[in-house]
Amino acid sequence: MPVLTDPSIRFRRSFLEAVKEFHADTDYEPSWFITDIDDAALSDSDEAAFETYVARVLAEGTEVGHKPGFVPMTTLWWTEGEEMLGRLAIRHRLIPKLERVGGHIGYDIRPGARRQGHATAMLRAAMPVAAGLGIAEALLTCDDTNVASRRVIEACGGRFVDEHDHKLRFWVPTRQPTS
């Protein structure tokens, strides 16, 4: 059964395979998280560079470790055994740009693992983490043409807010209502 886990060098082989899948996918442009990886970290022979990449991603969850213009974000990988199936980033707070595009949570499932329910399960599993970061309701956005992502967000309780520049915005409760 897949679980959310912190990024780790133990998933290096699978992560590198996933990046190749994302680049080969002709249906979608690679996500920013794919284009934000140093070439050295993607090398089959440079384990130290991958370790540096993982350390950077983990540090981005702190006030001092995130890049200028970004907010702290907790990145988690959706894994099963030694396989990295997807990744999810929870931004700890919103800035005006994220209020329009991006929201609190962004996620990607590697192409070979899509259409198997992973995105919905991963987003559901992330809600308690977001709640633990003090996010009562998470803002999520998706392209107006991304029917699959819209269905994932709605399956997790997303309430449609509006559309802005071809982006749909939804509020998703991070805690399950009590009966």
Rank of each mutant, 00 (worst) to 15 (best):
D36K: 08
D36R: 07
I37K: 07
D38A: 14
D39M: 09
A40G: 09
A41V: 03
L42W: 12
S43C: 09
D44R: 11
S45M: 07
A48M: 12
T52F: 06
T52I: 15
Y53C: 01
Y53T: 04
Y53K: 03
R56T: 15
R56E: 13
A59G: 10
T62E: 08
H66S: 12
G69P: 04
F70W: 08
M73P: 01
T74F: 00
T75F: 07
L76S: 12
W78E: 05
T79D: 04
T79Q: 10
E80N: 10
E83R: 14
G86S: 08
G86E: 06
R87K: 10
R87M: 13
R87S: 09
A89H: 15
I90T: 01
R93S: 15
R93G: 12
L94Y: 09
P96N: 09
L98R: 10
G102H: 05
G103N: 08
H104C: 09
I105S: 00
G106T: 02
Y107F: 13
Y107K: 06
D108H: 11
I109K: 06
I109A: 05
R110Q: 03
A113Q: 13
A113P: 00
R114P: 08
R114H: 08
G117W: 07
H118F: 11
T120S: 12
L123K: 00
A125G: 06
M127N: 03
M127R: 14
A130P: 11
G132A: 02
G134D: 09
I135T: 14
A136T: 08
A136I: 00
L140C: 13
C142R: 03
C142K: 06
D144Q: 04
N146I: 08
V147R: 02
V147N: 01
V147W: 02
A148E: 04
S149T: 06
R150M: 13
R151Y: 01
V152F: 00
I153K: 01
I153R: 00
E154W: 02
G158I: 02
R159H: 05
V161A: 09
D162E: 13
R169P: 03
R169F: 04
F170R: 00
W171Q: 05
T174Y: 02
Q176T: 15
Q176H: 03
T178D: 11
T178K: 13
T178E: 12
S179K: 04
